[in-house]
Design a protein around this nucleic acid. Structure first.
Length: 721
DNA sequence: CGTCTACATG
């Protein structure tokens, strides 16, 4: 195939080579603009072009030269040389120029299997899985049979596309063609089934594997880890160690992420030291796993310091840290990190923006949410289903169910998550009829509900007080073959509790097929608090104190219950209990946005620059409220459990300060949006209702649990929360 | 020439 020939003009751009030069001893200098554009050192010499090009293609690292190399290949008549063209396709896909590789592939007349392998590998590497699978099909239609190198690439594509049926078909071919003994192919199959969520199939392939290497074990360990079975994954890891096999770094990635899943910081840390012992600290993917571990275990500072040590982070590292912050409630930090990433010209992907949107949702600032929405709107992500469901959730959680609906309406492909996000959004705001209408539309659109859809519907009924409707919906779950989960039971208890059917709620709990947990007992306690049922409240609280002993909220609820029936001894007992356990009442904290700035208030807070004005205005408003007949419920003033707080006027609660500041600094008629960290207090709730009428303002308050829309002296929660 | 990994919406 090779022949000597005289250099013709276009090749003069290449560096000087003597005819006898062996490829490996070629001038190792990189293929740069300098030697490209400096033809002076090139003369008419002869050489072997095939070896020359294969070597060049092996060494080149610059995508700008691909087209030039291609035209040189054509000039030298090597465009029909299979070796050269295969190398070219390899290089093209390694440099991320898959379309260039494809062009060359398409121009090649002979159906050589290694060319197909190269192009399928390229698409698989570029995550263009369906294209890879299509080419595989076409290859067979053209009568080219796969070899043992084709199959791992195809399997990777099947896994990436989560294409179970295709994967199974490929599995069948593997048998027919006798590749079932190939370890690479087998390990690939385990991974395909794992990524399609078919853990049983993965296990079957693994069981039949005769020669299990570290890679085989890693495949099955990660299969369990990826499918929500971290405990099982770790069990298999121990088994692998018993066989005397040492994990490689990829094994450790899977093991660490399993420990992250079960939030076992201790074991995770020993993996970390193992990583250090093995000298794998600088392996980027391992570091990502470790950052995830520490973030999931709530050790965000350690996660951050591991992140900070990395000089150049890839997108996934950024994503990991951003979502770590967001999930731990460090919303500001997440958003700041996103901005820093943009300023460093790192291109975000859909995962990045999903995590940042989550941070905005948690922050609750509609202003910040709008900015994020604007960014998405002019980005490539505006049609991404993941991103759109995150946006719907964000707008709903930031108080604007209308903006959520706008995103919902313009989302073309509505999957179950998109529908459910919107239904849950309506649920948060107590818009039960809208939620139910949407549920019907969803069914008409041929999308089947899942468990989250029902959580949305039940919370909607709950927050809107539609007890019977909610009960009916709960019972309809079995028609859809959806097993109620803990959350669903909690919604029903809440629902019955709201109606004052405490005994029925208690009966319902007793008949639950699963062990009632925190949210179920929490719902019963909160119903007991509202209907002043001390015995049931105490009973629920007992469960809560043992299940969730460090959650201050439960203690406060019980104390409020005692206070409401003037059982001061009970209030004192709770206070002692809290002190014993080292708990202090969470500081109430409210935020309001004015002109794009977030103003934070705490109880009796005088730190605001306009504090004097605020308190003056506050006093004036208070007088008006009294005049209008508002009587402060002084008994529940004692719901503040610390002695210090008791002296503070209940009127100084943070949400009031935020509202006063909002009234002062916005034109009349503007909707005020407040976010607070705790549940609304009885006094403030009554006061805000009145304020909404007196000042003729809509006031939207997001408390720790739900939204309250105050308007004309009424609240959307119907005074139950 | 290839197999195992990390981040993500309700």
């Amino acid at each position: 195939m090779s022949r000597n020939f005289a250099l013709s003009k276009p090749l003069s751009i290449f560096p000087r080579i003597s005819p006898s030069t062996k490829i490996q001893t070629l001038n190792p200098q990189p293929f740069t603009d300098h030697n490209l554009n400096n033809p002076s050192n090139i003369n008419n010499i002869t050489f072997n072009p095939e070896t020359f090009f294969t070597s060049l293609l092996d060494r080149s690292t610059c995508r700008r030269h691909l087209n030039q190399i291609h035209s040189q290949i054509i000039v030298t008549g090597l465009q029909f040389n299979g070796f050269v063209i295969t190398k070219f396709i390899h290089l093209g896909s390694n440099l991320g120029e898959i379309s260039c590789a494809r062009k060359v592939f398409d121009e090649f007349p002979e159906p050589y299997v290694f060319l197909w392998n190269a192009i399928i590998r390229g698409y698989s590497k570029e995550n263009m899985f369906s294209e890879a699978i299509m080419l595989y099909t076409r290859m067979q239609n053209m009568g080219v049979g796969p070899d043992c190198f084709t199959l791992p690439h195809v399997l990777k594509a099947c896994g990436g596309a989560a294409a179970f049926e295709v994967g199974r078909a490929v599995h069948a071919q593997i048998f027919r063609r006798g590749f079932e003994a190939d370890g690479f192919v087998q390990n690939g199959l385990v991974a395909v089934y794992a990524k399609c969520g078919r853990i049983d199939n993965a296990g079957m392939v693994f069981e039949r594997l005769g020669d299990r290497t570290v890679v085989s074990w890693t495949s099955i360990i990660s299969a369990y880890a990826q499918n929500g079975k971290p405990v099982e994954a770790l069990r298999i890891f121990k088994k692998m160690r018993m066989y005397g096999l040492q994990p490689d770094w990829i094994t450790l990635v899977s093991v660490i992420s399993a420990y992250a899943d079960i939030e076992d910081l201790g074991q995770g840390e020993s993996c970390h030291s193992c990583v250090i012992r093995m000298g794998l600290e600088s392996e980027p993917d391992l570091r990502i796993a470790l950052v995830t571990l520490y973030a999931k275990c709530g050790n965000i500072m350690v996660a951050k310091s591991l992140f900070d040590e990395v000089e150049t982070c890839n997108v996934i590292m950024w994503n990991t840290m951003i979502s770590g912050f967001a999930k731990n409630g460090y919303c500001d930090e997440a958003i700041v990190l996103f901005k820093r990433m943009l300023s460093k010209n790192v291109k975000p992907d859909s995962v990045t923006v999903c995590s940042t949107i989550l941070a905005c949702a948690q922050l609750g600032s509609l202003e910040e949410a709008r900015k994020m929405g604007g960014y998405i709107d002019q980005s490539e992500f505006k049609t991404d289903v993941f991103v759109n469901s995150a946006l719907i959730d964000m707008y709903a959680k930031c108080g604007s169910v209308d903006l959520a609906r706008k995103v919902f309406d313009k989302t073309k492909t509505k999957d179950i998550v998109v529908w459910s996000s919107m239904i849950v959004g309506y649920g948060l705001h107590g818009k039960a009829h809208e939620a139910i209408n949407l549920f019907n539309l969803m069914k008409q659109a041929g999308v089947g509900p899942n468990d989250v859809t029902f959580i949305g519907l039940l919370t909607a009924c709950n927050h809107a007080g539609l007890v019977e409707e909610g009960w009916r919906i709960f019972n309809s779950m079995k028609d859809y073959n959806i097993e109620p989960r803990h959350q669903h039971y909690a919604c029903v208890v809440d629902l019955l509790g709201r109606a004052g059917c405490l005994d029925r709620a208690y009966d319902f709990i007793k008949k639950m097929p699963i062990k009632p947990g925190v949210s179920v007992w929490g719902a019963l306690l909160s119903a007991s608090r509202i209907y002043r049922h001390v015995a049931l409240g105490e009973y629920s609280a007992e469960h809560l104190f043992s299940l969730d002993p460090y959650n201050t909220g439960h203690y406060v609820q019980l104390s409020n219950l005692y206070a409401s029936v003037r059982m001061w001894s009970g209030v004192a007992r709770v206070r002692v209990l809290m002190k014993e356990r080292g708990l202090a009442k969470d500081m109430g904290c409210s935020m309001i946005e004015i002109k794009g700035r977030l103003h934070v208030f705490r109880m009796g807070d005088v730190s605001h620059p306009r504090s004097d004005e605020i308190f003056k205005e506050h006093k004036r408003l208070d007088a008006r409220l009294k005049e209008a007949g508002l009587v402060a419920d002084t008994e529940s003033a004692l719901h503040d459990l610390s002695y210090e707080d008791k002296e503070e006027s209940i009127c100084n609660h943070s949400e009031r300060l935020a509202i006063v500041y909002g009234l002062m600094s916005t034109p009349s008629g503007t909707t005020l949006r407040i976010t607070k960290n705790l549940r609304a207090c009885v006094n403030c709730h009554a006061a805000i209702k009145l304020i909404s009428r007196l000042e003729n303002r809509e006031i939207v308050v997001r408390d720790a649990n739900r939204f309250h829309h105050f308007k004309n002296g009424e609240c959307s929660c119907g005074d139950y929360w």
